[in-house]
Design a protein around this nucleic acid. Sequence first.
DNA 1: GGATAGTTTCAGTAATTACAGAAAGATCAA
DNA 2: TTGATCTTTCTGTAATTACTGAAACTATCC
Lengths: 191, 191
Amino acid sequence: MTLATAPAATPAFAEQLRTAQDLFIRRWGEMGQTWGINRTMAEIHALLYINGLPLCTDDVMERLNISRGNASMSLRALCDWGIIRRLHKRGERREYFESLSDVWEMFSIIAAERKRREMDPVLETIRQCQQMLDESSLGKSAAKHESVQLTRQRLQGMEEFMEVTNKIFQQFIGNAKSGLTRVVKVLLKAF
Amino acid sequence: MTLATAPAATPAFAEQLRTAQDLFIRRWGEMGQTWGINRTMAEIHALLYINGLPLCTDDVMERLNISRGNASMSLRALCDWGIIRRLHKRGERREYFESLSDVWEMFSIIAAERKRREMDPVLETIRQCQQMLDESSLGKSAAKHESVQLTRQRLQGMEEFMEVTNKIFQQFIGNAKSGLTRVVKVLLKAF
DNA sequence: GGATAGTTTCAGTAATTACAGAAAGATCAA
DNA sequence: TTGATCTTTCTGTAATTACTGAAACTATCC
């Protein structure tokens, strides 16, 4: 039982380190999930981030108990997002992966992508709806109907909100190289 | 075919209104989904928001083609979140529902809840991890190991980020009654 | 009390999403 | 070229999540 498969004796601190890392990884995975990110993907990212040192596919597989296929696909997806990087070690055949180290940069990349994929289409739809309900589409009398007016109002409220949110995102995205963003600096000074 | 089940003749503008609303509802549902919110729940909310006028369970069922059970559960969940409200009409037996009308208030409620449910636990975990890796837990020499130092650095980076984010959320949450939040006003003035 | 109108709960099922493992595809060295 | 090593893709399956429909429950009226 404890013969061939026994791990090389590890110093106590290494075990403790691993335990702490695992704790973080699991929590990060849970959080990711509730924000619409596949748990495994979030966990891989957490592992690479928290570990600092680059890891190869087999490291990741072993550490998180996932299949090669899963690891490969998730790593690729993370690369596509741009929050981890491929890394070739001199004289080594296999690829290593490392996370971006700057959290602000990481999240600004994520913000940019989500804005593009999710917020922009909504704004576009809102505008399309507004057009369908303006006077030139419905005629003057129909456009005055209470129900139409109400919906128009609601569309406008949402549009305003999303426009402001977009601006904030853009600021965050534009200035997020290393350390606090301009947005954040402004906020921290103000309060 | 077109006899008994034919809908009462609706003016053209009502159809157009419905089409526009449906467009918005579908998009909102899609967005919700990618943010980890059940599509149906997001759609119900979108319907109540965009429609303005309160609707009863049967209205919702019919409009979104969902079962009574689903409607009931989702409506209750939305009430629990606090972004829609139950409403009793004088002399009517059944309940109606309406969405909050102020988008800023709505999102500040959502922000508060997600902070509580998802960000706070992560922050707590990070601190727990840091404790596990400090000198008094590991001993001086172990705590100096490169791997430990690296992980500690990463934990710290993440902690800082989440603390600032938390503060921003808190501002947003605290001041979001009707119209632009203080956070947002500060930002808009600054850029 | 019973009848009616409306709401909630929940067990079973459908739909979706995540995953493993194996096969195919690369890349490189000799 | 062949073989070795490593990566990607993909199909079937497992796990999860979402949904329905019917039964149980509640409130209201007569």
